[in-house]
């Protein structure tokens, strides 16, 4: 019995002693940390997407406190959160400093509507698919559907739909541009959400060729050009293009497009 008590006493004594030591050490060797860094880190998305060019979100928070970086370098943070961060930093928030508003859009709606040249069998990777005698799609500009953009997206905002076309979720996309770099066919670009409409085709082939290969291609018919009251749409190289300087987002062009190539965010 004595032994048990002795054991308990020894161990508790040791524990108490070490506890005291630790408490003393933490006081003695305390390093002053800017509390704002912690607070900002909590508000930041925490996905470490790297779009700001710094080492993760905590690195960005530190840089913000040190005034070494602009808040808009973070593309993943929503406007409200940016305002909250600016408040912590004690900076007056204004309109421009909190307007990210850019998301990625896919300029190809081919998918299963675009014919296959052959059955591709190989690595599920767009880079490799593109190298395999020019890709398995009849259209040499269009999406290969192997999902490199899906894999690279830190927010899980891109999915390949049933019809084999990739889709960006407007809710989830934070505009980090990783997918833009990952796409070998360069069909992804960034645009402002408030601009509303975009063209879902990148092929610059002749209209007849395009129509033969893909049912979801811009056939350069010009109906949208006529419909647009602002004169914001033009056809260059067999492809409709929207001038976002003059486009007002009225979406009249969407209804007239015979191949449904003009899409709304």
């Amino acid at each position: 019995m004595n032994r048990i008590i002795l054991g308990i006493l020894t161990l508790s004594g040791l524990g108490f002693g070490f506890g005291l030591l630790l408490a003393w050490m933490s006081k003695k060797f305390h390093v002053e940390v800017d509390r704002r860094i912690m607070k900002i880190s909590e508000i930041l998305p925490g996905v470490n997407c790297g779009a700001c060019g710094l080492a993760g979100c905590s690195g960005f928070a530190e840089a913000l406190v040190n005034n070494a970086v602009n808040i808009n370098a973070c593309v993943a943070c929503s406007g409200e959160n940016k305002k909250a961060i600016l408040e912590i930093l004690g900076v007056q928030a204004d309109e421009t400093s909190t307007d990210a508003g850019q998301i990625a859009v896919m300029h190809c709606g081919g998918g299963m509507k675009c014919k296959d040249r052959f059955l591709y069998r190989g690595l599920k990777d767009c880079l490799i698919a593109a190298q395999t005698i020019g890709g398995h799609k009849a259209c040499k500009y269009g999406c290969l559907g192997q999902g490199n953009c899906v894999a690279v997206c830190p927010f899980g905002a891109i999915v390949i739909l049933e019809n084999k076309t990739p889709q960006v979720s407007t809710q989830l996309c934070r505009g980090c541009k990783k997918c833009v770099a990952a796409c070998p066919r360069k069909i992804i670009s960034m645009m402002y959400v408030k601009k509303k409409v975009y063209i879902k085709c990148v092929s610059r082939e002749k209209a007849a060729d395009k129509a033969r290969k893909c049912k979801a291609s811009c056939i350069a018919c010009g109906k949208c050009v006529k419909e647009c009251s602002q004169g914001a749409i033009a056809i260059n190289d067999n492809l409709a293009q929207i001038n976002y300087e003059t486009c007002v987002g009225c979406q009249k062009c969407v209804a007239v497009c015979p191949t449904k190539v003009i899409a709304v965010i």
Binding site: G122, L123, D125, L127, I128, Q131
Partner: peptide, 13 residues
Amino acid sequence: RRILEHIRLLKTV
């Protein structure tokens, strides 16, 4: 395994 395709991918990247 598709070793060669992985290597081609590495070469490209």
